[in-house]
Each structure stands twice: as C-alpha cells, then as structure tokens.
Amino acid sequence: MKNKEVVNIIKIGGKTIDNEEALAQFITSFSKIPGQKILVHGGGILANQIGEKMGISPHFHEGRRITDEETLNLITMVYGGLINKKIVAKLQALKVNAIGLSGADANLLKAEKRAVKTIDYGFAGDIQKVNKDFLESLLTQKLTPVICPITHNGKGQLLNTNGDTIAMEIACALQTQFEVNLWLCFDKKGVLLDVDDEKSIIPQLNPKSYAELLSKSLIYDGMKPKLENAFQALKSGVSKIRIGSADDIDKAIADQKTGTFICA
C-alpha cells in the first residue's frame, strides 16, 4: 500500500546559490516546510566564476555542461564541498538536521558515463539506479538530505549529472512509497512564452501543449532539459510538479498558483 506521507523534493541553482541574500532567504523558507523534504542543489554560476579565476572556461550544449577532467575536479570541489556544506551549516543553524551527500555516498546515485553520439559531454553521468532504501532510512530518522549533482559509476569514477535529472530520478524512485511533490527552481517565475517578458508565464503545460511549443521553436534550449525531466517525473507518477522561482517556494508548498504546473 502506498504511504501517503508527503515528501517535498526541491531543486535549486542559478542565482539562488550565487547570491548570499537570496540563498539565506530560500533556506529560511525551506526550513519551514513541514514534514519530510529533500534538497538537490546545483551551483553552475558559482562554479563558472571560480573556474574563470582558475582559467577554466565553461562549455555547454543545449543547456547541459560539457565536463572535461579539469571541469570535473572544479565542480566536485565547488558542488560537493563549498556549496553543499554551506547549505548544510545554514540549515543546522535553523534547527533542520541536514546531511550533505554526493551520489557516491552510500552508493546513493549510480550512473554511467554518457555515450558519445553527436556530442561528447565528457564526464557526464546518466543515472542508472537510486538507492531509495538509503534515502528512506534517512527520512525515517528525520534527516534532511542535501544532495549535490555529483554521481559515480561504481568503479571509482565521479561523474557530473544535471541537478534537475537527479531531483527527477529521486522523485521517481520515492513515489512508490510516498506522495512526492517536485519543485524545479530556476531564475524565472516559470516557463516563459517569451524569454524577454517576465510576465509571459505559461501557467500549465501538458505533453500535447509542450510538443506544440517545441514544434514552433518556442521552447528555448536552456529550458528543454528541465522540461524533459519534469515530464519524465509526471510519466512515472510523481504527484505534483512545478517549475518556477525559488522565491516562490512558500506559495508552491501551500499549493497556491505560482510557476508552471506540469500536468497530464
């Protein structure tokens, strides 16, 4: 029988991570979310900034980072160290018993290096298995997992994996036991019909309307990975999925109309 206990899975990145004030505001809001919760974070902007100082330039294709060995070392330090532990410490200060994790810890996220087709993404990992038993044991102990976007292949190799993909895979793995709500946060208030118009939020997307927008080239490259993850979660039975700003997380958890709602 499906356990109806709610688990909120929230992914943040972008300017929320980069801006100390925005991060503090989000963490305060996150700490007030009742019940079980999991935080997945990125940190691409900060990694880019630190990388530039080290002479490492970022490279992307359709919104996904191309990860060579030098970049992998950089993001492991920034994601798994600086950002992850900063978030955990701030949550502990707010009496949230958080635990920072990468995909290698407790074999949480096992992945395979993405096969080279038209683009070589380098040390990018596609998730093969989520250790849901470990996650469930943490939730049972009232611990709040804070997960960085680093996975591993079980053979000693770390891999870079998209944070939205990690949030989606965890949501899909846990939905058999919990009522899972997934909130994919980024720097806009929702999916925009016009990327230059902050008010052009698409309030609702289903597979048909998404396909229509794709056919008209109205979905920008950077949004495609996020939307693909959202629709995969929907297909797997995740209860509620929204895409929007981390600033509106209070509204989202209260089930108010905010962001873009992904529905069947």
Rank of each mutant, 00 (worst) to 15 (best):
T260V: 11
A93I: 03
V40N: 10
F26W: 05
F60S: 06
A111I: 04
G125A: 11
G80D: 09
Q177A: 12
D68K: 11
E136V: 03
D105P: 03
Q175S: 15
C263I: 12
S137Q: 13
D221Y: 01
A47D: 04
L109H: 02
T16D: 00
C185I: 01
A211L: 12
A173W: 05
Y210I: 04
V78K: 00
I56V: 13
V6K: 15
G100Y: 04
V130G: 06
V130N: 09
K224H: 03
V180H: 03
N162Q: 10
R114W: 03
K86H: 10
E20C: 00
K53W: 00
Q256S: 06
L218H: 09
D250V: 00
L174P: 03
I27F: 01
D197F: 03
D164A: 07
A252Y: 03
E62C: 02
L135T: 02
F123K: 11
D248Q: 14
A89Q: 09
N107M: 08
G156C: 13
V78F: 00
G14Q: 01
I202D: 08
Q177N: 15
R65H: 09
G43H: 08
A246L: 00
P225A: 06
E136P: 00
A246V: 02
V116T: 13
L139E: 10
K113E: 14
N160H: 12
K95M: 04
T165V: 05
R65C: 05
F134V: 02
L227A: 03
S209Q: 12
T71V: 09
T151M: 10
A89L: 02
V238P: 04
L135A: 05
G122Q: 08
S137C: 08
K53V: 06
T165P: 00
I253R: 04
K4P: 06
I75T: 11
I99F: 15
D194C: 07
I10N: 02
K37N: 07
A264F: 07
A254C: 04
V116I: 14
L74S: 09
E52D: 12
L39S: 05
A254D: 13
L184W: 06
I33F: 01
I241Q: 09
V195S: 15
I219T: 05
I119F: 03
I50Q: 03
A233C: 09
E21W: 00
